[in-house]
Design a protein around this nucleic acid. Structure first.
Lengths: 142, 142
DNA sequence: TGATAATAGTTGTTTTTGTAACCAACAACG
DNA sequence: CGTTGTTGGTTACAAAAACAACTATTATCA
């Protein structure tokens, strides 16, 4: 039919999804079981933990997450006292989000988990391959 | 704090998810808009198109899709007359699934779309990198 | 055999997500 | 100003996914 065979297992969007799902699973179990967090909540938490005070809009733009998802994640994180909101005085539409002490604790714990989890994931991969992988994924997904 | 900085954008599960989502989007639009298919439906269709007659269980095992998702995808594909079911005579729990002529047409069309879509995705990537990428993703996600 | 467990697949219910409509505050421009 | 458009964020409703419980059939093994 065609000279180079097409295998679904090699189709890039499919392959990426499989790899993403498989490699997210273990970490998801941690933040889910330990803190009852959802995927978007973990992401918002990490954005605030890593980059400090920012608005919902900025997180959305940076992570390509829809604003409704962020809105709900922020609500739940606030309900657990992981973050607090502060309206911007200049532009009263904006809300600056910031982790509380409790939120920073959770973040610090998950941060360590993330690092060791990733180390386990990449345990058997050559350092050069890891670099290449990151570069290519960034090109595809940025 | 720590010697090698941790950037969320480089955290592998995150990066993989971003790349997977971004690279699935365009193809999803095609099967969605053109045929009203859902993600799992497209996947089931492709399994049957590529590998021929198989059972729901086998598809699930091969693609790591939960059986309830497959069950519902099969229902919808059957309702559209894209596939037909046949009970196994030896083991009457099993159902062999097979594409109809109509299903094969849709498959053939999407097959071509998948190939050209992937080609566009990889347009700017060196052939060697593509090989490496597939190898690494397979190692992560298989 | 017959009781127990395992397998293939379906159905029902609850969570999450996606989409659209919405409100309030600000911007632009006549 | 004031009308029109845009932006940041929330809410409501519909679509989809996750999870658990279920039926029917076959396998296991005392």
């Amino acid at each position: 039919m065609q000279k180079d065979a097409f295998d679904l297992q090699l189709f890039l969007p499919y392959l990426l999804n499989q790899a993403a799902e498989a490699s997210s699973l273990g970490f998801a179990r941690i933040y889910k079981e330990r803190y009852g967090l959802l995927r978007t909540e973990w992401r918002v938490l990490f954005h605030l933990g890593l980059y400090g005070r920012m608005t919902a809009r900025d997180i959305g733009a940076m992570a390509s997450i829809h604003k409704t998802k962020i809105s709900r994640a922020v609500q739940r994180l606030e309900a657990r006292r992981y973050l607090k909101r502060a309206r911007d005085d200049k532009d009263r539409r904006k809300e600056h989000l910031e982790l509380t002490a409790k939120g920073r604790e959770v973040y610090a714990d998950l941060y360590n988990e993330a690092r060791s989890y990733e180390a386990r994931l990449l345990r058997n991969m050559a350092a050069e391959d890891v670099t290449t992988l990151r570069r290519l994924l960034t090109a595809l997904g940025g």
